[in-house]
Simulated scan of single mutants.
Amino acid sequence: MSELLIVSQDADYYLMLSHILEEAGYTTVLIDVPSEAVPAAVERDAAAIIVDCQPGSQILADIASALKQRGPASEILLIALVAEKTAYLDILKANVDESFTRPMRPQRLLSYLNSVIGVSPDKMPGRLMFDDMRLDAGGRRVLVRGEPVNLSPIEFRLLSALMDNAGRVLSRAELISIAWPQKAFVEPRTVDVHIGRLRRALKRALGRDVIRTVPKAGYAIDIA
């Protein structure tokens, strides 16, 4: 069974969450000293660190920084459970793999975990594009000619959405609903910024621009 570390200083919340997760087949461990989260995850070969994020807390940023120091080879997912009034910018800066706004439906978290945990990346079919670019959904990575392309979680989800709908124009509203947490306030201009970063990253790797801008409509990616 996949092990999940839950970083929280609220024992009641941990007990409730752990019961839900364990009923779904996961094992959980409470981490009440945040600085121990990453070392414990590495030692126990945990699949994910789930952080109970409270307003004004530095815990998520510290854990994200510790994971980043492990380099791109780290396969430990970082998931934020965001309490009301927590600054969304703090979550964005932490580059989490996924975030959920509390109160949340447990099924949303379970659906996400079931889709990304316990599946070996080398057994995932992935999706091929342009013959030399591959999006590995299970491993949450993009490879161009076998070399990884460094993308943020939001940029990865944007690319995944565009590839899932290759040739079709996706509006900014559609991209926001796919790539950002539910209930997050995102301006259309923010989509443009992230698409711009994604476009530059892919152009550096592929040597050509593969994202098409459709004025007043949105963006598309075309299989050549």
Rank of each mutant, 00 (worst) to 15 (best):
residue 1 M to V: 14
residue 1 M to C: 07
residue 3 E to W: 03
residue 4 L to F: 02
residue 8 S to R: 04
residue 9 Q to P: 00
residue 14 Y to M: 05
residue 19 H to K: 07
residue 20 I to E: 03
residue 20 I to Y: 03
residue 22 E to M: 02
residue 22 E to A: 01
residue 23 E to I: 08
residue 31 I to R: 02
residue 34 P to K: 11
residue 35 S to R: 11
residue 36 E to N: 05
residue 40 A to Y: 05
residue 42 V to R: 13
residue 51 V to W: 12
residue 53 C to L: 13
residue 54 Q to L: 15
residue 54 Q to V: 13
residue 55 P to L: 01
residue 55 P to N: 00
residue 56 G to A: 01
residue 57 S to M: 10
residue 59 I to K: 10
residue 60 L to A: 06
residue 60 L to N: 06
residue 64 A to N: 06
residue 73 A to N: 12
residue 74 S to L: 13
residue 74 S to K: 12
residue 77 L to D: 10
residue 78 L to M: 13
residue 78 L to N: 07
residue 82 V to W: 01
residue 82 V to G: 00
residue 84 E to R: 04
residue 84 E to C: 04
residue 84 E to S: 13
residue 84 E to V: 14
residue 85 K to D: 14
residue 86 T to S: 09
residue 87 A to E: 04
residue 90 D to V: 03
residue 90 D to Y: 01
residue 91 I to P: 01
residue 91 I to Y: 04
residue 93 K to M: 10
residue 93 K to L: 04
residue 94 A to Q: 07
residue 98 E to D: 10
residue 105 R to L: 08
residue 106 P to V: 15
residue 106 P to H: 15
residue 107 Q to T: 13
residue 109 L to R: 03
residue 114 N to C: 04
residue 117 I to T: 09
residue 119 V to M: 13
residue 119 V to S: 12
residue 122 D to P: 01
residue 123 K to H: 06
residue 124 M to H: 08
residue 126 G to C: 07
residue 126 G to W: 12
residue 126 G to R: 03
residue 129 M to L: 14
residue 131 D to G: 01
residue 136 D to C: 12
residue 137 A to E: 13
residue 138 G to S: 14
residue 140 R to T: 08
residue 143 L to V: 02
residue 144 V to H: 14
residue 146 G to N: 07
residue 148 P to T: 12
residue 148 P to R: 08
residue 149 V to S: 06
residue 150 N to T: 14
residue 150 N to E: 08
residue 151 L to Q: 12
residue 152 S to T: 15
residue 154 I to Q: 07
residue 156 F to T: 02
residue 156 F to K: 05
residue 157 R to M: 06
residue 160 S to L: 06
residue 165 N to K: 02
residue 165 N to T: 02
residue 166 A to C: 10
residue 167 G to M: 08
residue 168 R to D: 06
residue 172 R to E: 12
residue 172 R to Q: 11
residue 174 E to M: 03
residue 176 I to Q: 05
residue 177 S to M: 06
residue 177 S to I: 01
residue 178 I to D: 05
residue 178 I to Q: 13
residue 179 A to L: 05
residue 181 P to M: 13
residue 182 Q to D: 12
residue 185 F to V: 15
residue 185 F to T: 11
residue 186 V to W: 08
residue 187 E to W: 02
residue 187 E to A: 09
residue 188 P to T: 09
residue 188 P to R: 14
residue 189 R to S: 06
residue 189 R to Y: 03
residue 190 T to M: 07
residue 192 D to K: 04
residue 193 V to A: 01
residue 197 R to C: 05
residue 198 L to K: 09
residue 199 R to T: 10
residue 200 R to G: 02
residue 205 A to W: 05
residue 212 R to I: 12
residue 212 R to V: 10
residue 213 T to L: 06
residue 219 Y to P: 00
residue 224 A to K: 14
